[in-house]
Design a protein around this nucleic acid. Structure first.
Lengths: 345, 345
DNA sequence: AGATTTTTGAGGGACGTACCTCATTTCACG
DNA sequence: CGTGAAATGAGGTACGTCCCTCAAAAATCT
């Protein structure tokens, strides 16, 4: 049986109240006593029963997820996943608010987050490009004791507690290898579609792609990035223009959203299935396109996993518990038609 | 705030004791009253606070994991993962015993499991080939109220509650596509190494491979299965013999363990890096071989995920809770050098 | 109707922790 | 050595559930 606070009190030769004061970092305990209690804790290998603790304190964790107002299928799936996870056992005793803010508008983001700071906020997950404004927001949140994680897009310069997402350079490299392998040995050009060249994750993915192409597939030449701004129509137009202007385009890498625009353009050009396409994120559309052969591989991060991981990491930070790195590492999933998970209703 | 038993009692117009009787299926409640209480439960959307319940009843779930005594790195990783998960929050309030039984010996397996049936067993995860003996064991376990899941290898004919693992036909198909794509358009032969042709998962993987090769890569001819029995030396010998006897072997698919034997044989034959290799399971060795270019892709199922999923599913069955299909679906991971997760110490 | 059985109610103690109050002890300092 | 402050102890209540007992009420049977 696991030791309890009572065992600690006995072992340390103090009262229950003192153990409690130490455990919950309440004042009024001599340094010496704190040491004695901590000693007993390590000696007995005590670990707080989180279930009982949460039960007792009627703890309600308050979390805010800040997501850009982009109407991509992936973001919709992510919103749903967050809502679902919040209801499940991982979201036990926590209230999760999803804030949808205008994309690429750090000022609006900061305002929106500040608007819900009247109530004490335990944790915050932010998906946004790295800008000084957001960085300052993270600093302020941390200062007032709120745990912060960056989601999908990292904020490496901000003092966030954790990054929940994938290594985008590695994702780009992965895409590059798949493109290179799938396209074969003939020379050709690779069209690259991104959301925006100002977005950190897009830059990283493109960088990874170029690295791998240069290293291992020098017969493939990547073209300048096309910006689709996560918009289907715009993406279709810019890619169509590119396909019309260039010959020998043997592959397309879509690093951002707006993948529907990519398949639209390919179909119009009669190139669907003839040009190797690697896209990001498994959605209803990319699934379909994988099945009908328009897209050949999808690099994906699991929305459910992202949501669960963000929530778990935030709670672990707040409760000062260790993080299971293995579990929280978001994998760069490679999906092809053959290993597509069955659709969940 | 979530409704509690007290709310249910008030809503149903009965006492707390009655609600408790209904909730825990204790006798002595009229049908009519049971209905009234259940009605109140659905009306208020009550869900039992599992943490509080476990706290109160001092529940200790007793689980047994039955694994074959194979000394592959994957199985060692799996054993470690199970041990770790049992210690973590997923294994809260549960005691997990890992039983290691002689491989391919259903009788020994049954005996070993029966030996620990003196204590009441809440759940059991079995990794074994499907045989009548094991099937009977599952039937008996179920009959005495033990939840049962099949792990990695399914027991489709046995009344197990759930299968925790991947679709092996799909895994074989996935391997086939990778082999086909990576090997290029030149005709050639594919060597296939399995543990044993009597193992269901091996048969399935091979079947998937052959399907895809026939459909999409008819220029590749798959050779008869080589049996390595998960043994490094034996695998090396059979594959070496095959490589010596056959010319034009352009690819190797290792569907089972003993991958070290495969790389040994290729190195000896001077074919390392020249022949496309697809293996299963990410281990220290396959990671290294991916990095040095001897293996080109690994089809993997995450050991930590398997362990967590098995435990979660068992507990859900015991507590009659719903299962989050999305979370419990084990993915067929495709790993190449570029999307290899960082090594965890 | 009375006797018997079944169903229900009321209440309490437990699980491990949090958090509160109030009294008592210990300590440092003048 | 006394005083005030700091440290500690003792004890309680609460969280939501389980599980137990005993009494009371209601239903069923004779």
């Amino acid at each position: 049986m696991r030791p309890t606070v009572i065992d600690i009190a006995r072992e340390a030769g103090v009262s229950l109240a003192t153990v409690d004061r130490v455990l919950n970092a309440r004042p009024g305990v001599r340094e010496k006593t704190v040491l004695a209690v901590n000693d007993a804790i390590t000696r007995l290998g005590y670990v707080r029963n989180v279930a009982a603790a949460n039960l007792a304190r009627q703890r309600l964790y308050r979390f805010v997820f800040v997501l850009p107002d982009v109407q991509s299928q992936f973001l919709q799936a992510l919103r749903m996943a967050i809502t679902e996870v919040a209801r499940g056992p991982v979201g036990e005793a926590s209230e999760v608010l999803i804030l949808t803010v205008p994309p690429r508008d750090p000022h609006a983001l900061v305002l929106a987050v500040e608007a819900c700071l009247d109530l004490p906020l335990d944790g915050c997950a932010i998906m946004a490009n790295e800008t000084p404004e957001v960085r300052d927001l993270v600093v302020r949140l941390k200062a007032q004791g709120t745990a912060v994680v960056s989601l999908i897009t990292d904020q490496p310069q901000a003092p966030r507690d954790h990054f929940v997402g994938i290594d985008n350079v590695a994702a780009g490299r992965t895409a590059g290898v798949l493109l290179g392998r799938f396209a074969g040995p003939a020379p050709g050009k690779v069209a690259v579609v991104v959301s925006s060249m100002l977005a950190r994750d897009m830059v990283d993915r493109r960088f990874g792609l170029d690295l791998v192409l240069a290293e291992r597939f020098p017969h493939l030449q990547s073209l300048p990035s096309l910006e689709g701004h996560d918009d289907r129509d715009l993406t279709e137009r810019v890619l169509s223009a590119c396909l019309a202007a260039q010959d020998q385009v043997v592959a397309v890498y879509t690093a951002g959203a707006g993948t529907r625009g990519v398949t639209d353009a390919l179909r119009k050009a009669g190139l669907a299935g003839k040009v190797v396409v690697v896209a990001h994120e498994l959605t209803g559309h990319t699934r379909e396109a994988l099945l009908d052969g328009t897209i050949h591989a999808v690099i994906s991060q699991d929305a459910g996993h992202l949501a669960r991981s963000a929530l778990r990491v935030l709670r672990a930070r707040i409760d000062r518990l260790a993080i299971d790195e293995g579990q929280e590492r978001i994998r760069i999933d490679i999906l092809i038609r053959e290993n597509l998970p069955p659709e969940t209703p």
